[in-house]
Computed example of a mutant assay.
Amino acid sequence: MEATVKKVYLGTTHFHEANEMVRAALAQADTVQLEDVFAQRYLGCTMPAGKRLEIFGTPGNDMACYMDGGSIEVFGNAQDQIGNTMNGGEVVIHGRCGDAAGYAMRGGHIFVRDNCGWRVGINMKQYEEKVPAIVIGGDAGSFLGEYMAGGIIVLLGQPGEYLATGMHGGVMFLARRPDERLVADGLVCEPVDEEGLAVLRPLLAAYNRHFARELGKPIAEDGAGFWALRPASSRPYATLYAN
């Protein structure tokens, strides 16, 4: 069966009415192209597998919140909290994103071509086969991976201050070794081993599929020179609690 495409023009429509328009369009088509998007919130919220949004403009906060398997591609920048508590699917940003992307994210992938704001990946988690991943092509603001409990963050640029504060699960792959003062007590930072490379390389390849053409050349996909940042213990705060 041939996939169906529907266009919706949002303009300055209030976010409540805008989301009603989007939901109605998704009920009729597999792919919905949103034109003239001006910061409407909650676009793609709870969207299921098999549905796709293509966004031309700037979506507002909480895009893809609770998304459950669909795909969203933004041809421009995105605002705060994209992928809030996202459960599955893929988000691709052809630009930068704001703060707290992937907040409490528990599944799916987010790819950002350029920089991101503060607190990206805060409270990320994973369970069994659900391993969320965020790939940032530029620099990150402060508190990247704050209280991270699981999942994967890949950073191709420079991290900000307070890197991985309170991190107690998951792994962060960094394209260059961070300054020692950024590595907090309870964390270890070491060159990526073969097991880590097996996880990292497919994410780098996916980043290239999305962005290499517009960046002018692909990034290296072999993972050479990357560093892995992770908790030194699976229970880093055990001593804070009574037995």
Score class of each variant (00 low, 15 high):
P59T: 11
A39C: 02
F211P: 01
G69W: 03
S142P: 07
A25S: 13
A140G: 05
A18G: 12
A184Y: 05
G95S: 02
A212E: 14
A198E: 15
Y162S: 15
P132L: 00
A24N: 15
K7H: 09
G186Y: 07
E73C: 00
L204W: 05
G225C: 00
Y147S: 13
S234T: 13
R119C: 09
L197F: 07
P231V: 08
E195I: 01
R181K: 15
P48F: 06
G225P: 00
R52D: 11
D222E: 12
V120E: 12
L240E: 12
Q33I: 14
H210M: 01
V37P: 07
P178C: 07
A18L: 00
I110M: 10
W118V: 05
Q28E: 15
I122A: 08
E214C: 04
M47N: 10
L34D: 13
A228P: 00
Y237H: 06
H14Q: 10
T4H: 13
R209T: 13
C189A: 02
Y162H: 15
L197T: 11
G137D: 11
L197A: 07
A198W: 07
A220H: 14
G160E: 00
V131L: 04
D36C: 04
C116G: 13
L34G: 14
D62T: 05
E195C: 03
G160S: 01
P48S: 11
N115Y: 01
C189M: 00
L215D: 15
E54G: 06
G137Y: 09
G223N: 05
R52C: 09
D139E: 15
T13P: 00
G141F: 03
V131N: 15
G145M: 01
P132R: 04
D36H: 14
L215F: 00
G98H: 08
E194C: 08
D114A: 10
T4L: 04
H14V: 08
G57R: 04
M148N: 03
H109R: 14
S142T: 12
R213N: 14
H109S: 14
R52V: 10
S142I: 02
G223A: 04
R96T: 15
G50C: 02
A149K: 13
A149M: 10
T85R: 14
M1V: 09
G225S: 01
G157Y: 08
K51A: 03
